[in-house]
Design a protein around this nucleic acid. Structure first.
Lengths: 209, 209
DNA sequence: AAAAAAATCACCCTTTTAGGGTATTGTTTC
DNA sequence: GAAACAATACCCTAAAAGGGTGATTTTTTT
C-alpha cells in the first residue's frame, strides 16, 4: 500500500510543487491537496490519510486550528507543519495541538522527503532552529516543574479553579481587581491558554491544583 | 459556660425580639446582633460564637454569602438560617454554603429554642416544608446519580471542561450559539452554579468528566 | 392521547472577561 | 548596578458570558 498524503497549503505554487515532488515517488500517493484548512477535519475523515502536510499560515483557519480539529477524531495520522515562522509561540502551539514534525519552508525542498520518512517511522523531524527552541523549552519546563508560575499566580489559579470570579479573588486576597487581571494574564501566557475555563481545565488535568 | 450566640437580621423588631427571647434563658448569651451580614466573617472571628442565627434576606450581603464567608474560617459554629422563603433554590444554596438548620420565620417564635437545642446536639432542625424539599431533593439525587444531566448536557459539559468556548461547542455540535447557551443555563441550574468556571470545577472535582 | 421532558433557536439587557497598553515599586539575579 | 522578575494598579475597547423570557419541535413518559 502507498502512503496516503493530504496537503493543506494556500500558496498554489508551493502546494503544486510539493504535490509533484511527492508523486515522483512510488511509495507516496497524494490523495488530496487544499488551499484552506477550513474543512481539514472532514477531509481527513473522508480520505483517511497516513500523513498530513499542514501550512500554519492560511487564510480562514490557521493550521494550528486545523490540527486541533483533526486530532479530535484521528490520532493515528502523522502531521508535519510547514511554516515560515520559527518563533516559540507557533512551535509550541502546533506541537501542543498534536503535530508530529515542524519544517520551515525554506528547508522543505531538500528535507521534505526525509522528514516524511522520519515521521512515518515514528520520528519527529524538525528544522534545526526549531529543534533548538524545543529543547530550550523542554529544559525550562523540566527545570521549573509545572509552568513556572509564581507563588502568587499559583494561589490565584487555585482560587480560580475553585470557581471564584476575579472579583471574589480580589476580595479574598485584598488586592484590586486590576491586579488580579494582571496576574491572570500572566497565567494565561504561561499556560498558553486564553480563557478561564482553559486555564482551570489545564490546572485540573495536569494536577496543578 | 453559656452558649454564645450571634444574630444577623435586618429587621430591628425581629432581631430584638429574638435577642430578648434568648436572654430569658440562662444557658444562652447573645454576644452580638447585627442588622447586616457584611462583616459576618470578622464578627465571628472576633466573638467566636457557638451558634449563628442568620437571616437570608438582608440588604448589602445575602445571608448565604455571609455563611460562605464564615465557613472559610470557622467550621465549628452552628448556623441556623432564618427566612421567609421556602423555595428550593434558597434552601439548597444555604445548605450547600454550610448552614446546619433552616427555619422559616413564621415558625421562629415557637420553634427557635428547640431548633437551637437541636443543632447544638448535632441535629439539623428545619421547618416541615423545608424538610420535604430536602428529602425530595435527596431522592432525586439518589435516583439519578449525578445531577440528572441529559445526554446532551453531559456532552456539552464535557466539551466545556476541555476548555472550549460556547462558540466552539456550537460549531462542534453543529447547533446555534443560542442553543448552547440554553443548555449551559440548564446545566448551571442543575449543578447549582452560576459560571463556567464553577461548572467546570465541579465537573472535575466530582469527576463528571 | 395528553402531559412532561429534551432539544432547538431567538432577543433583550447587564456584567464579566479578554486583550492590548503603560507604570511604579521592590527583589533577585547576573 | 543593570537586567529580569514579581506584584501592584490603571486605562481602553471588544468579546464573551450571565440572566431573563418566550417559543417550536421532537421524544419520552404516563
Amino acid at each position: 500500500m502507498k502512503t496516503k498524503i493530504i496537503i493543506f497549503e494556500d500558496n498554489d505554487f508551493l502546494r503544486e510543487g510539493i504535490s509533484h515532488l511527492l508523486m515522483l515517488r512510488d511509495e507516496f500517493e497524494v490523495v488530496g491537496s487544499f488551499s484552506s484548512g477550513l474543512l481539514a477535519k472532514e477531509k481527513v475523515r473522508d480520505l483517511n490519510p497516513d500523513l498530513v502536510l499542514m501550512d500554519i499560515e492560511m487564510p480562514g483557519a490557521s493550521g494550528v486550528e486545523a490540527v486541533k480539529a483533526i486530532r479530535t477524531l484521528n490520532q493515528r495520522c502523522q502531521i508535519i507543519m510547514l511554516t515560515v515562522f520559527d518563533d516559540q509561540g507557533h512551535v509550541f502551539e502546533a506541537l501542543q495541538a498534536g503535530a508530529n514534525g515542524y519544517l520551515l519552508k525554506r528547508h522543505a525542498s531538500d528535507r521534505l522527503i526525509s522528514a516524511i520518512e522520519d515521521v512515518l517511522s515514528g520520528g519527529a523531524p524538525m528544522s534545526p532552529s526549531i529543534a533548538r527552541l524545543v529543547i530550550e523549552n523542554m529544559r525550562n519546563a523540566r527545570a521549573t516543574q509545572g509552568y513556572n508560575l509564581s507563588d502568587r499566580e499559583k494561589e490565584i489559579l487555585r482560587s480560580l479553579a475553585l470557581g471564584n470570579s476575579f472579583k471574589m479573588i480580589a476580595a479574598d486576597l485584598g488586592i484590586s481587581l486590576e491586579t488580579v487581571r494582571t496576574h491572570i494574564k500572566k497565567i494565561y501566557e504561561k499556560l498558553h491558554v486564553h480563557s478561564q475555563v482553559e486555564a482551570v481545565s489545564k490546572a485540573f488535568q495536569e494536577k496543578l491544583v
